[in-house]
């Protein structure tokens, strides 16, 4: 069963990071991704640019509306995701617990509607 782990955190904290801290964070995520791959549960991942680089659009009555910024302004922002393929929610929770984001943010675990 596929699950997406949505990684939410306060992105301003990333901006305040030193070069060294940033490198540490990156290598923690690389190690995590590697662990997922080694376990054969990794599907895909991405790390996103901050929300200020985001653009939101919708078509209302066939009219294209484009607006600067994220869809929702929240205290924590979506900063990345992992798609993993595991047996059940308990397994997904175990992997979420090992993701570096749990220490400073929140991870939302959503099952795939496509199995």
């Amino acid at each position: 069963m596929k699950y997406t782990l949505f990684l939410y955190s306060d992105e301003t904290a990333f901006g305040a990071m030193s070069q060294e801290q940033m490198q540490q964070a990156q290598s923690a995520y690389m190690a995590y991704t590697q662990a997922l791959q080694d376990a054969g549960v990794f599907v895909v991942t991405d790390w996103l640019q901050p929300t200020l680089t985001g653009t939101t659009m919708t078509l209302r009555d066939g009219k294209r509306r484009v607006q600067d910024g994220p869809y929702a302004t929240t205290k924590e922002q979506l900063g990345g995701y992992y798609v993993i393929d595991v047996q059940n929610l308990d397994a997904a929770l175990q992997w979420a617990e090992r993701c570096p984001a749990v220490h400073y943010g929140f991870i939302e675990i959503r099952p795939s509607a496509m199995g």
């Binding site: 699950y3 047996q87 929610l89 308990d90 997904a92 099952p111 509607a113």
Partner: peptide, 10 residues
């Protein structure tokens, strides 16, 4: 059912 909560004893 949808979230795949397993029927297991932890």
């Amino acid at each position: 059912k949808s979230a795949g909560i397993p029927f297991v004893i932890p």
